[in-house]
């Protein structure tokens, strides 16, 4: 196999947050992403799952260097993106695009669909004429399932699903190698979600695209991903092939997450075993000592409060950060 497109090693994103009183306040680092490592190969989809505040969106933005990394390496085709200056970074981003969660808010309301989709061309292919750009935008609209005759319409004239198609067309127009999808279907109705997921999978097949698919929806992640990374309070809990992660999850958090997803089948939903976690996500400003999951973990023992569990191999390509995964 060829080298991975993207190699992330020990990535940390810490935000300084002022805590305490007005006069005696101090800065405490909020560890949004805390030592995350993974590879992403060409044509592959890595799903990133976790609950709100687990750092999955920050991770996506840090890969693009939209948010600077505090520490660690984001190696894109062998070049460390964290070491590039602004100009070099902009050049590198030609191959790295992003699709955001809120389809309407992420499109400029004063630009037409055609201008939005063609904007990356204006920046990266300055030699193209206006007519060329328009033609390419029309082709891309057709490709993502929009009618090219709607090219002069503004975002508010489109439905949520159509706006997300515009966002995808904008991301695809430069034929990037990697698209980061940050909750791309969360704001859409179920009947539209399926359309957009199928479109992303089609584009991946046709263009050999790699996807970093960030979502809280475990069923959709299972559908679209080849491998899945589970995050909790900025740390990797488990990383495995899709089939292994969903069939034999090793981390108690992954097991609880999977058991919590309601199944649209009354017989199965009412008879399944659920692992109910107690409590809520701890504040990321004062994460628990040792294993960050231990305060909600049904299997926690004294060692979990003392030592941070490292990632251990639980099979080929299957890594888990838990002291008790063998139990």
């Amino acid at each position: 196999m060829s080298d991975p497109l993207l190699q992330v090693r020990g990535l940390k994103v810490h935000f300084p947050v002022r805590t305490g009183g007005v006069f005696v306040g101090q800065h405490t680092p909020l560890k949004a992403v805390d030592g995350v490592s993974f590879d992403l190969n060409q044509g592959e989809t890595l799903g990133v799952v976790g609950e709100s505040g687990c750092g999955k969106s920050t991770l996506g933005r840090a890969v693009l260097q939209l948010i600077g990394a505090t520490d660690g390496v984001v190696s894109w085709l062998g070049t460390d993106l964290t070491s590039l200056n602004k100009k070099e970074l902009i050049a590198a981003r030609e191959n790295l695009q992003i699709v955001f969660q809120d389809p309407l808010a992420s499109l400029d309301p004063r630009m037409t669909a055609g201008d939005i989709i063609a904007e990356p061309l204006r920046n990266y292919r300055p030699s193209l004429t206006k007519g060329d750009r328009r033609k390419m935008a029309e082709e891309m609209m057709e490709r993502v399932g929009l009618l090219p005759r709607m090219i002069n319409r503004y975002p508010h004239e489109f439905s949520g699903g159509q706006c997300q198609r515009i966002g995808i067309a904008r991301a695809m127009i430069l034929r990037p190698k990697l698209v980061i999808c940050d909750e791309p279907v969360s704001a859409l109705d179920v009947s539209i979600q399926a359309q957009v997921v199928n479109l992303l999978m089609d584009l991946q097949r046709d263009f050999g695209l790699a996807l970093l698919f960030i979502s809280h929806d475990l069923a959709i992640v299972r559908h679209i991903s080849h491998r899945v990374l589970v995050l909790y309070l900025g740390k990797v809990m488990e990383l495995a092939d899709k089939s292994a992660l969903y069939a034999t999850p090793r981390h108690p958090y992954t097991q609880a997450l999977l058991s919590a997803v309601p199944i649209p089948d009354p017989m199965k939903e009412r008879n399944k075993d659920r692992i109910l976690l107690t409590g809520d996500l701890p504040s990321p400003l004062s994460p628990p000592s040792g294993c960050v999951f231990r305060t909600r973990c049904p299997r926690a023992t004294s060692i979990c409060a003392e030592t941070v569990p490292g990632l251990e191999s639980a099979g080929e390509g299957h890594e888990v950060a838990c002291h008790h995964w063998r139990d």
Binding site: S159, G161, Q162, D189, V190, S191, I192, Q193, A194, Q195, V197, N198, M201, D217, L218, A219, I220, R222, H223, Y246, L258, V261, I263, P264, D265, K268
Partner: peptide
């Protein structure tokens, strides 16, 4: 039927998700 088909579920694996064509 369409809603049930296009809802991905953890208990069954499908190749491509069924969709309801068009817009609401």
């Amino acid at each position: 039927q369409g809603l049930l088909d296009c809802t991905p579920s953890l208990d069954v694996e499908t190749e491509a998700l069924e969709t309801i064509s068009g817009q609401p």
